[in-house]
Design a protein around this nucleic acid. Sequence first.
DNA 1: TCCTTTCGATGAACCGATTCATTCGGCACA
DNA 2: TGTGCCGAATGAATCGGTTCATCGAAAGGA
Lengths: 352, 352
Amino acid sequence: MARDGHQRVRLRDVAERAGVSVGSASQAFGRPELVSEQVRKRVLDAADALGYAGPDPAARRLRLGRAGAIGLIFAERLGYAFTDPAQAPFLRGVASAMEEAPNGLLLIPDSRYCEEAARTVREAAVDGFIVYSMPQNDPRVEAALARRLPVVTVDQPRGAETPFVGIDDRAGARSAAVHLRELGHERVAVLRFTQELDVEGERELDLTVERLEGYKEGLGEAWDASLVRVCRPNAPERAREATLELLGEREPPTAILAMSDTLAVGALQAAAELGISVPADLSVVGFDDSPIAAHTTPPLTTVAQPQEEKGRLAAQWLIEDIERGTGPRRKRRRVILPTELLVRESTAPPRG
Amino acid sequence: MARDGHQRVRLRDVAERAGVSVGSASQAFGRPELVSEQVRKRVLDAADALGYAGPDPAARRLRLGRAGAIGLIFAERLGYAFTDPAQAPFLRGVASAMEEAPNGLLLIPDSRYCEEAARTVREAAVDGFIVYSMPQNDPRVEAALARRLPVVTVDQPRGAETPFVGIDDRAGARSAAVHLRELGHERVAVLRFTQELDVEGERELDLTVERLEGYKEGLGEAWDASLVRVCRPNAPERAREATLELLGEREPPTAILAMSDTLAVGALQAAAELGISVPADLSVVGFDDSPIAAHTTPPLTTVAQPQEEKGRLAAQWLIEDIERGTGPRRKRRRVILPTELLVRESTAPPRG
DNA sequence: TCCTTTCGATGAACCGATTCATTCGGCACA
DNA sequence: TGTGCCGAATGAATCGGTTCATCGAAAGGA
């Protein structure tokens, strides 16, 4: 027995030591009911003695034709992706749908170099992909589609010929705006995501456009383009700065529509810094109903979207497609889940 | 060409169509410099025509002996894991260390059934594992170690014979407690994690014990075991309830030590609900310096730990080990990164 | 013209398993 | 004793590539 740098132990070695054929050894692990109790024990003992950890995943995968994992392609750099707490419920949904089978979830980190990232997609050992909030024409998305594996798209891009899970962003945004109008707000600022995700190429997030349209529709004549601020990345800091700026103007807004709770948090923070009371002097509405929304001070009025359900559905559909194999394509599935305005304590009629 | 249920296209088919050997076809993809421009073009064209998406990952992995991914084993059910925003920076660190090579990050979801989870670990196509904050003797950890792949442990478990990255939990906790003592607090409550992670078997998180010890040391004679509350899971809700209860007592605490920012958020919320001012009437100290800590109201005093650095280091070490292969084991690496008390605005001397 | 290089293509061996058609041994029954 | 049957073990084929020793042809040099 080699001491430190021991060779990899193969099934063959185990079989040899146990004095049986590789076939039998394989059965002993994979389907015990096909071999005699005796052989099974001998094989297991031999494996033990040799320190054999079980069949090599790569090899069995090749033979079985299944990777036992699904890939998840994120919108931004992996790191930033995790910054938005709204994604946690989505992942939870995905995970819950995957609990039954021993599958893994392969995150595809976005590399600094786009080409590398696409390569990761091409070389990923997975049975299918979930594409989550990606801009259209992203090289990773294209690489995923090129692999001809089952793909389910969530939020973005909407156009592709794949099953799609999304929400009615426009309606959700509109409901937030209408809420403020009904409270009587006239000057409403908007904290929005950036439009171009990449410096080069105008890769738009439809989602951003949709929400913007929704705000516009809901605000009606109260819409004021000069009160729109772009926040990039989607993190509190930029929102805080933007809000400080907005509130410092001669005629500050009485309410803020933020495209995410993360941005709303930044707005709340700016208000607190300036001693401006929310909701008495400023109303704030978020989007997502992320886990933090209920725990901010004051608790955030926000547009809830069923993130967990989205994740669960996407994973479920994908797994179905994978299991059906290259069978007959069902008609393209597509669902738009509803949003709901959750009125908490960050909104109130404007003063005066 | 089959229409819908088209067969999988193999390299062999491409080679045949291009009129070259499989060897050459392989080279055309893998190392273009070894074949003539002419052959390369022919192969690529043939691949195109056949809709060949590139070499099958499973097969090439088998041959290459590298999976091109590392596994990440989390503490709790995958879903809950993502609930704690403190883990985001850790993941970011891991991701950043992985950016260079086209690697994937395989999350191992905890199944409802422990056995399933261990099986996922056994069958995961990865080159190594990062074990992150896991209780000792967890079946998944054991499965990971049994695979004889490189493993790096973070936070937990401390005992294993693997490279280890952690922080000085006790010192961190102590510094938080000392801070409160120096401000003059006498009655200090503690919101702690649970000790047993599983109903059966007392699988302790050393981390919890360590922090508890730290608090005890720092508080000295102000330590009062009757003011300790267990919060499970690690989410604001339980902390909120516990805090409401604590503040409703006849002689409420003037300060709270929370083992995570997530718990601290719950405490802040409870205080806000009761109209108790933080920090005037109640001081709160968190742990982690998670992304939300700076954005709570008021901004949270907390023990910062270098999550991102932990992630980066763990991934770096793991990748080194993987690349060195079964080479000579270096002496066991182990690092305890420093924590730092960040005093923000949630702590002040007690009233009166 | 003949001998060396050099460059590129070839195809067999291999990666580590699973599967399945076949063979074998033993037992029951006629 | 011969036949039939059944459960269990066998081992070759296969999964889809990569690699490398070998070979051939073309080019260069004497």
